[in-house]
Write a protein that binds this DNA or RNA. Structure first.
Lengths: 343, 343
DNA sequence: TTGAAAGCGCTAACAA
DNA sequence: TTGTTAGCGCTTTCAA
């Protein structure tokens, strides 16, 4: 049961194959009656255009890839959802691939998909700058949660976000904090610490950093234990998973959050409001970021449809989304240094 | 900068294009030295085979699609991860599409992808049986968390799982329970209730059902309120999200879990062990289910490579994975009916 | 407005 | 073992 082709449809509608092709691709270039006839015939046969045969000719696949540094990380949930949605609206297929936190896999995946997709969204890419530049010179690329100068990107406004956290801390009377860092390859992680430490100075806060930690709940224990040695009043974690792990350990050690220690995370994953106490956290990339990244990519493809990306990129293509600090229960007034610390 | 083709490679290696093709597709059919030469030339040129040009000829795309009833549902997380991993290992690309809980979208998505993929994994499909049979007669299809007789599938052993829950309940001295049902289109939901109510009888338990509820945390409040009217000692929820929402509402109403009411969910999503109290739940499809579904599909494609699926399916292709009841903190001995119920 | 024909990049006979 | 050739299903000139 071979699937029908334009030839089958053409025969049935008594027209030339090229007319069938036009009826689908450039309906305005076909007589009304003819088009009608073709469409009916196609429908009767159950004809579905073969996008790849088309791509062979046009170079456009109507498919884009989103490569994610870690598909198991809940922070990408909404991002994927938004992207998927937007891609579908534009009748594009979204291929989602997992880089498993490995630069090598990330590169490989892009390589494998070169001929299959029109462009790439790289989310929280672990690739070094020069690799990214290199990729971008060969393919259409949009970065998510990473910025690299001429490349188009959509990222949370980390500067703003960190300021929001700092101000929150100051307003609660904290005089310093300890930042539990994530993986060294994380551009976002580096950016966060940069803004945090710089901003701390301006706000007269003492900033400490410990880590790196692989940001998983299980590693929170280690982070909490290390952090406690400096008796901080506030702990910031690379992300919510780590923050949740930290809260657990604190509570296991008899410390109350936020009375004894304030804990703040990054990303606002689904679970952040499910834990007890509910986690105060800086909202991360969401469905909107996902939609925008696809839009950016689609726009790029539009302006230079062939496989050759344009040279200089428009600064308007470097989106920085405003962040929100979702204040929940895990942050509170700085505790009075006292004896709950005799652990 | 056109991407290089076999012709470019052929010229550079001074061989015929078909030899280049063979060097990649059937290396054993090419002389060692020649192959070496071709590979070097290809590498120098940065040649990447075009899978779609190949597919045009062979009918095999090395791509499979996984359509998920709701991509935002955390229960599919590990499933996707496992599938992605297994697909990559077999050098196949996995396209993940979201059916948004809509049978229409599900059908459409399959339709759109007909020519692009070799087969489909339908996870928690919302399609009626006859649609499924119809699809399966045209495409290679593997079901996940749904069973329909001759079609290959991988699902949790719901019968076993429900028995595990029931036994747990009995062992804790419960004499009945209320089941908060999920969406009516959910095959899994129906199966759960069927096993639960049948099993209850055997165990001498009184089974009640309320609902349906859209299984989201927010709807737990409604479910909890309705359920409480019958003063149950145990609440089973269609899934963990609903269960978590129920626990919240119970606690908001001053009821303690598990002292006053036992709550048990389905799926064991990531957040289940993060909430307080930690949720007792029946483990759902995981990375292993994802891997197996891909393996099944790949096997099917192997045995009948063209677009035509085989007629009768092997019963060995209906996998039923053993379940585990993850007993955490939300389940406990049946409370003594008393006055905490004067709500 | 429509048709004929060439070609996109690749594989698979069939010959050599 | 290698080359020649004919498509796979589609789009796109170019003519009619």
């Amino acid at each position: 049961m071979r699937l029908p082709t334009i030839y089958d449809v053409a025969r049935r509608a008594a027209v030339a194959p090229s007319t069938v092709s036009r009826a689908f691709g450039r309906p305005e270039r076909v007589g009304r009656a003819t088009r009608e006839r073709v469409l009916v015939a196609a429908d009767e046969l159950g004809y579905v255009p073969n996008p790849h045969a088309r791509a062979l000719q046009t170079g456009r696949h109507k498919t884009v890839a989103m490569v994610i540094s870690d598909i198991a990380n809940p922070r990408f949930f909404e991002l994927v959802r938004g992207a998927e949605q937007r891609a579908k609206a534009a009748e594009n297929t979204l291929v989602i691939v997992n880089a498993e936190e490995s630069p090598t896999i990330e590169r490989d995946q892009v390589h494998v998909l070169t001929r299959s997709v029109d462009g790439f969204i790289l989310a929280a890419s672990r690739l070094p700058d020069h690799d990214l530049r290199n990729l971008a010179s060969k393919h259409h690329v949009v970065l998510v949660d990473r910025e690299l100068d001429p490349l188009p990107s959509v990222a949370m406004d980390t500067g703003l976000g960190c300021r929001q956290i700092l101000e929150h801390l100051v307003s609660l009377g904290h005089e310093g904090f300890t930042y539990c860092a994530g993986p060294p390859q994380s551009w976002m992680g580096a950016a966060r610490w940069a803004w945090l430490s710089r901003g701390a100075e301006e706000h007269g806060l003492v900033a400490r950093r410990i880590g790196p930690y692989t940001p998983a709940v299980a590693n929170g224990a280690n982070a909490a234990d290390s952090a406690l040695r400096d008796r901080p009043t506030a702990l910031l974690a690379h992300n919510d998973m780590l923050a949740i792990g930290i809260m657990r350990r604190l509570s296991a050690r008899g410390l109350r959050v936020p009375e004894d220690v304030t804990v703040i995370g990054f990303d606002d994953i689904f679970a952040a409001e499910l834990v007890t106490p509910q986690l105060t956290t800086l909202q991360g990339p969401d469905a909107r970021a996902g939609r925008l990244s696809i839009e950016l990519l689609l726009e790029l493809l539009q302006s230079s449809p062939t496989s050759q990306p344009r040279e200089g990129e428009d600064p308007a293509h470097q989106l920085r989304l405003p962040t929100h600090l979702v204040v929940r229960e895990s942050s509170g007034p700085a505790h009075q240094a006292s004896d709950e610390w005799s652990h």
